[in-house]
Amino acid sequence: MATNKRIDEPTGTETVGHEWDGIEELNTPLPRWWLWTFYLTILFAAVYVVLYPAWPLIDRATTGILGWSSRGALQEELINEDQARQAFRAELAEVEVADLRDDEELFRRAVAGGEAAFKVHCSQCHGSQGAGSQTLGYPNLNDDAWLWGGTLEEIHYTIEYGIRQPEDNARRQSAMPAFEGILDSAQVAAVTQHVRSLGGEAEPNANGAALYQQNCAICHGETGDGNRQLGAPRLNDAVWLRGSSTAEITRQILQPRMGQMPAWGERLGPATTKMLTAYVYSLGGGEEAAPQPTDRVPGETAEVRPAGSENSDG
């Protein structure tokens, strides 16, 4: 067959000499370097197969003598990234919590780091952006109502030692007594109405006010301002931890539920707790520290523990 070569008239090009049902092919030679390039790619493939993961086996692939893997490459990048952050973490560990905002750049990086850490450690209860849950009683961290204080130092203290940790009875401890059996239902209804009136949600109730002054004012304040040293919520504002309905408040008076939070200081280390502090502060409710320095350690022991079992609904 290959002998039927002829010169194609219109093009003046030789045919390759094969003929298939009257179809012939012109021989337009490729440049030889093209062929060499092709051999080079084959050589490349051979070298690649030796160096890198290539042949699929039943449960894995050949590893290649370089030992490269995408997972390993990722691991390496993560380590590098972590090392690149070492200086920042060291700097953050050094800085005083109260001075976090002095260096704007540092504060921004701390907020960014805190946002990531918040999603891992905190969002399970407080929600992905700290919106909390009224149904479950997890405080909203975006507003300006704070149970234990909203300055950088107070937030940091809360994160570091947690709230109502049974093994640490020196910090952030308090309990509200259950008034079930102490007050009768009429009294409870009166107090409930008074509490709701503090925030403007109900008409005042004189009987309730008197009962409030006897039983509640010691922690929640005479006018319902709350007490941050005790974690006693402010009652005369528009923010309600577990709702402002009569039913919710009655329930809270009879069988109070009090939140708990784990201590994160040891688990996360100084840098991460400061990042979380910066993030929570930046959510919008952060408070300036009082201008005059105080000797008070934020959240010093304040235990008011009348009869009644401690509730720990998390």
Partner: peptide, 11 residues
């Protein structure tokens, strides 16, 4: 978008 709005203590 989360939370879309916040109630502050003064309402």
């Amino acid at each position: 978008r989360n939370p879309p709005f916040m109630l502050m203590s003064d309402g």
